[in-house]
Computed example of a mutant assay.
Amino acid sequence: MKTMTYANNAPHKPATVLITGATGGFGGAFARRFAAIGSKLVLAGRKADRLKALRDELNTEVHTIEVDVRDRTAIEQAFGTLPAGFDEVETLINNAGLALGTDPAQKADLDDWETMIDTNDKGLVFCTRALLPGMIERGRGHVVNIGSTAGSYPYPGGNVYCASKAFVKQFSLSLRADLQGTGVRVTNVEPGMVETDFSLVRFKGDAEKAGKVYADTTPLTPDDVAEAVFWAATLPPHFNVNRLEIMPTTQAFGPLAIHRTK
């Protein structure tokens, strides 16, 4: 294992960035932000047509992978056989994730729970584990996990979604402990309310319900989150951002709930 040394204040340009969930709102914003500085991109997602459209839009070298992060064997195969020029992934952005439903735990759909755990947690660790050995061997790398404020601040109906993002937070911090001295950085970016198709997915296509989430307020945008990720990833390599929690100005913390008999 070799450890790289850098000028203390030199900005960093990741040579190759791999983004999971690349066909969603966050994924597209991340891809455009890193393409703007000429990083090579590996875009992983489940929808081939959207991957192609994004690839054709970007003015940089792009390799696409049609894959579901829940499929451990497929991830190991795809990430282990990246073509020359894309095989030294420097920055992994674990972005694939979702929320499903807002029913209380006693009424929640177990299939929804399983899908969230498989995607938000198991998929994230499959992708991370596939690329870590190469990063460590090269003495450089950065794992950027997309967490959520839900991982710190639970809310009614959040149950497994909140728990899955708490896992992402603790996994990120534990990675930092394991990777000390390797030259590999780890960052958990934790957005609050952001207007994407997140709520449309959560409410399984119910546009009216999804729209109410963002009504009469000013949420963050995918570009806002992309700027936060880009900032953390382009800092000099001696500088690690452990956690970056971001919210729109219109959002804050609620009071603790108290049940009253009258």
Rank of each mutant, 00 (worst) to 15 (best):
S39C: 02
P222Y: 13
E190Q: 12
K169D: 13
E195L: 07
K169A: 14
A105H: 10
D68V: 08
H259K: 15
V189M: 10
Q77C: 04
G28K: 14
F198K: 05
A215F: 03
L43N: 09
N145G: 08
T218E: 15
G181A: 09
D68M: 11
G157R: 00
V168D: 09
G80A: 06
G38R: 03
G157A: 01
A96T: 08
G45H: 08
A232S: 10
A252T: 12
D197T: 09
T3R: 12
S152C: 11
G192H: 02
G134F: 06
S39Q: 01
Y155G: 05
A177F: 15
I37K: 06
T221W: 11
H142P: 01
V225S: 12
N8I: 14
V69L: 08
S172R: 10
A78Y: 00
E57D: 10
A35L: 01
G38D: 03
A78P: 00
G205I: 15
L200E: 11
K2F: 02
D112E: 13
P83L: 01
L43Q: 09
G183Y: 09
A7Q: 12
K209C: 07
G205V: 10
T234K: 02
G45I: 14
G97E: 06
A232N: 02
T16N: 02
G25I: 15
N59A: 14
Q170F: 14
G28A: 13
A130R: 09
G192M: 04
E57Y: 05
R32I: 01
K40S: 14
F126M: 04
T182M: 09
F171G: 08
D223G: 06
N59V: 11
G134R: 04
L200F: 14
D197N: 11
D111T: 15
F86Q: 00
P104L: 07
L54C: 07
Q180T: 12
L98T: 07
T182R: 11
D109R: 12
D121V: 14
A22E: 09
K212S: 08
L58W: 04
I258W: 01
R138N: 04
L98W: 03
A44I: 13
V125H: 15
